[in-house]
């Protein structure tokens, strides 16, 4: 099977790769680029743990072939975390107790950033809707929603 020549901009850096066309974007991020922040949960688009921004929009990276992303810009949780610090959404999750085991957290962070980019002043309903595709098996949803709402408050 011929390899596919993939050009991606990942977290601001141009990357050129030769990949098996069967690889999903999540496979490439984790296994080729060593970016393990996007997690493999269900691998079927249900849990949201693999959420990244594709051209600025939140998507489940397990549900798209990497080859289909050729020429696109990808932002992972590694790309939004400042050196030695935390993104406001990450800070809010820590402060409000919105993290438990942490497996869902990178996906939650990316979905929340996607939401806040589109809608900087979300209501609780908007936040719950924006995070509807992110499962937390520790079921800490209340604190997560409070955390995302507090990011909005701190900006105001």
């Amino acid at each position: 099977m011929p390899k596919f020549h993939l050009s991606l901009t990942v977290n601001g850096e141009a990357r050129e790769l030769l990949i098996d066309p069967r690889r999903t974007l999540l496979d490439v991020l984790r296994d080729e680029l060593d970016l393990r922040g996007a997690h493999r949960g269900c691998d079927s688009g249900d849990c949201g743990a693999c959420t990244v921004l594709l051209d600025g929009k939140p998507i489940t990276s397990c549900m798209i072939l990497a080859a289909d992303c050729d020429g696109s810009t990808v932002t992972t949780v590694e790309g939004i975390t400042p050196a030695g610090g935390l993104h406001p959404v990450q800070k809010a999750l820590v402060e409000k107790g919105g993290i438990q085991c942490g497996f869902c957290t990178p996906g939650m962070v990316m979905a929340a950033i996607g939401l806040l980019n589109e809608n900087p002043n979300p209501t609780e309903h908007d936040v719950r809707e924006g995070l509807a595709g992110n499962l937390c098996r520790c079921t800490g949803y209340k604190k997560i929603v409070e955390a995302v709402l507090s990011v909005e408050e701190s900006k105001a």
């Binding site: 688009g45 949201g48 959420t51 594709l54 929009k57 939140p58 998507i59 489940t60 549900m63 798209i64 979905a111 996607g114 939401l115 809707e129 924006g130 509807a132 595709g133 992110n134």
Partner: peptide, 9 residues
């Protein structure tokens, strides 16, 4: 339908 992540794809 689905979630925003899926609706974007």
């Amino acid at each position: 339908m689905a979630s925003v992540q899926i609706r974007n794809l």
